[in-house]
């Protein structure tokens, strides 16, 4: 009798967990909105920089940025800021 009840309880608990995840699972922050806003806020007027890279390097950079949940433009901007500070 009691073992039957446990048998019913276990799947019910599992369903509850899934239910909780479906209802409340933490949604990741909007990936583009925040960085865009901060980039705009940082510099006022924007200027465009275009560079040619080897395909492989470009792909690796892009993939690495995605894996780290960042954007290429953020990382390049960070690099330029750091480098400029060091060399000026």
């Amino acid at each position: 009798m009691s073992s039957k009840r446990t048998g019913f309880k276990l799947p019910a608990r599992e369903t509850q967990d899934v239910q909780g995840w479906v209802e409340e699972g933490a949604a990741p922050a909007e990936p583009t909105a925040a960085p865009k806003a901060s980039a705009r806020a940082a510099g006022g007027k924007q200027a465009r920089l275009t560079i040619d890279l080897p395909q492989q390097l470009h792909a690796r950079f892009k993939a690495a940025c995605a894996i780290n949940q960042t954007r290429m433009v953020e990382e390049v901007t960070r690099f330029i800021e750091d480098w400029t500070q060091k060399h000026s």
Partner: peptide
């Protein structure tokens, strides 16, 4: 698409836990 797929992958990996 590649950028956006990360979010979906995270959901799928979380689900694999259940």
């Amino acid at each position: 698409d590649f950028w956006a797929s990360r979010e979906t992958v995270n959901l799928v990996k979380e689900s694999h836990g259940f």
